[in-house]
């Protein structure tokens, strides 16, 4: 399976994602934001970081990069696209997924492991993962997910909420909400569920010598669905 990770000026999780994808069997290529064409890929990843120094709004400048037109075209044809953290912010700014990411509720940059519950129905990202609660990592200043009530209802009706923050026992509550996101939302799908945007970083937790190995389930599951 072939993947492409897009590098923007200020991306800083691009190499981690490259390591993770290669570890789990993808043949990954790094693609510069100024290129116009994505190499033949089964998966495109917009990595985390601080593209363009988060100027104007996080992800807003990167969303106008040369490569983005190809990403949109790839996504609209049903290609799998993942945006992690800043990549999620970029997806939001392109309009490929719904909503907005506001400054964290308590105005703090949050960098820690958190627990999430993933939506396993009818999607290639989480469907066969056996574990109910995943321990992933977040590191962001603007991850406070927001959308209008109408959009929230539409997304809930279409089962587009991908990931929610929870506690170690899987309970979803205000206490397990690190950044003020509505409904504890940590990630969403587009309507067809080929696009996933989420704040947590699976690529940071892919080995037991790191703080968690739960990101491995994500990549293994994704790959198993693509073979």
């Amino acid at each position: 399976m072939k993947s492409s990770v897009i590098i923007f000026p200020g991306s800083n999780c691009d190499r981690d994602m490259d390591v993770a994808l290669n570890k789990f069997g993808f043949k990954n290529k790094m693609v510069w934001h100024n290129d116009n064409v994505i190499p033949k890929s089964d998966l495109v990843v917009l990595p985390g970081g601080f593209s363009y120094g988060d100027y104007l709004r996080c992800g807003s400048i990167a969303a106008k990069s040369n490569i983005i037109n190809s990403v949109i075209e790839f996504a609209n044809k049903g290609g799998l696209v993942i945006g992690i953290c800043n990549g999620f912010q970029i997806l939001i700014e392109t309009g490929l997924v719904t909503g907005a990411l506001l400054r964290n509720k308590y105005l703090k940059f949050i960098c820690k492991n958190i627990f999430v519950k993933a939506n396993k129905s009818h999607n290639k990202y989480f469907n066969k993962i056996k574990k109910d609660v995943l321990e992933l990592h977040i590191a962001h200043n603007d991850g406070n997910y927001f959308c209008s009530e109408d959009d929230l209802k539409t997304m809930e009706d279409n089962d587009q909420i991908a990931v929610r923050y929870c506690d170690i026992n899987g309970e979803i509550s205000d206490n397990s909400n690190p950044n003020g996101s509505i409904q504890n939302i940590a990630g969403v799908f587009n309507k067809k569920k080929n696009i996933l945007g989420m704040m947590p970083h699976p690529e940071r937790v892919i080995d037991n010598c790191l703080s968690s190995n739960d990101g491995s389930y994500f990549f293994e599951n994704l790959l198993s669905n693509m073979k």
Binding site: L102, L107, F146
Partner: peptide
């Protein structure tokens, strides 16, 4: 209606 944590602070 949109939360503005900076304005609040």
């Amino acid at each position: 209606g949109v939360l503005d944590p900076q304005g609040k602070a």
